[in-house]
Each structure stands twice: as C-alpha cells, then as structure tokens.
C-alpha cells in the first residue's frame, strides 16, 4: 500500500486528488512518477496528490514512499481494467483481489467486478464513459444499463469534444456521482481534472472510504 505524508494534508479541510494517471508502467504511459511530482510542485498545480491507475495491472513493485516524503504529495495506486462495458478504474486493490481476477484480461464482466470487488473493499468506477467503444455509454446502447454502478468519471482530462458532456448527461439521467481525473500519460497533462474530497486521505483504504461517503466533487482545471 502506498503511504502519504499525513501531516501535509491533515491540516486542510479538503483534499484534491487526480484519480486517473498513468506512468511509464503503462504501455502507453510516458511519464516518470518523480517527474509528475516535480511538475506539480514547480508549476504549483493545485492538487494534493494523485492515483496511479496503470492499464490492466496493479503495480505491486513500485515503492513511492521516499518520493512521498520528499514531495509532500499523496501518491496512491489503483488500476484501470477493461470490461465489456469499457474501461473501469479500481481503487483499493488488495492481494486477495489480485488473486481473484486477472487484471490483464480485456473482457472482465462488469457486474462481477462491481459486486465481488465491493466484497474486497475495493471500488470500481467506469472511466471516460462518453468515449466511443471503450466508454460505458456506448456499451449501454448494446448491453443495457449495468447494475451496481454508483460513480463514474464525469471529467476526464483526455476527453475529446463532447465526450464529457455525454457522460454528464448519462450521470444525470441514471443518478451517478462523478469523479475527475486527468488520464495523463505525459507529465505536463497531470492535474487537468481532479476530485475534491472533504477531510483527509492518506492511503488507498481512506480513498475508498471517502468515495463510499459520496461527498466529493469532480473539478476541471483545463485551460
């Protein structure tokens, strides 16, 4: 589990996290985590940390604790998996969850993901739902509305024109809550979208709890 510097965010009444980022651990990621931190600090990007959601994997190996201390940023780990409804962010990944599912599979059943991952104290959030083919909305047209979805990514920093609007309309119609993430693959794209939480988050478990509390808001910082 990735640790964060508790005291740097404990004094704040809100925490802003970019919930969707990729590093060089993802096949199409070109950003080093250290450079993300340098970039956030030097450009004064108004986020307190980020979640690394590598494609089709959970990065067990990487230890960012030294970087967390030196940067004062909260660095958490999650994953972006692929289901028949498109891509889904997962927060709160545990060893048991990794044993139960092949993260590398590109056809995980969303219903099963949502149901059993809750049992593992993880939370699954369909991302960029307005995107063609890999977004949930396009697949709802083919497969129907999936049961069990509570939160979707309503702001995605990599969205093309109109994609977030499709998501937001879908979220309004179906009563979903929204998070934000930059979907950054290069350093300078981090923090374009993020999620604001009340209180303190310093590890993955607290992130899951904060998502379950349903008191968060997606925010955009795109220029």
């Amino acid at each position: 589990m990735a640790a964060c510097v508790h005291e740097t965010i404990a004094e704040k009444t809100v925490v802003i996290l970019d919930l969707h980022t990729h590093s060089i651990k993802s096949d199409d990621g070109r950003a080093k985590v250290e450079n993300y931190c340098k970039w956030i600090r030097s450009r004064e990007i108004p986020i307190d940390g980020f979640v690394l959601t590598e494609h089709r994997q959970f990065d067990v190996e990487s230890d960012y604790s030294t970087l967390v201390k030196s940067s004062g940023l909260c660095i958490l780990k999650g994953s972006e998996v692929e289901t028949e409804y498109g891509h889904v962010l997962v927060f709160g990944v545990t060893e048991a969850l990794m044993l139960a599912y092949h993260f590398s599979s590109i056809g995980l059943p969303l219903a099963s993901v949502l149901e059993s991952w809750e049992q593992h104290n993880a939370i699954a959030v369909p991302c960029h739902p307005g995107r063609k083919r890999v977004g949930m909305q396009a697949n709802i047209e083919k497969l129907g509305v999936p049961a069990g979805v509570r939160i979707v990514e309503t702001l995605n920093g990599g969205s093309r024109r109109g994609e977030d609007e499709i998501t937001q309309q879908m979220a309004a119609e179906l009563g979903y809550l929204g998070i934000g993430g930059s979907d950054s693959h290069i350093v300078s794209h981090i923090g374009r979208c993020a999620t604001r939480f009340p209180g303190d988050i310093s590890n993955e478990h607290e992130l899951v709890e904060a998502l379950r509390a349903e008191e968060f808001a997606a925010i955009s910082m795109r220029q």
Partner: peptide, 19 residues
Amino acid sequence: VEIDLTVSNEAGETRVFGT
C-alpha cells in the same frame, strides 16, 4: 533534458503525444 511533446488539432484534442 526531457520534453513532453504533443500534436493537437484545432479543437485542442491531443492526436499525438510523446517524449
């Protein structure tokens, strides 16, 4: 030095990125 690179269209959509 490392440089982030992008090619975008008029809508501001990233078409190519890299380093």
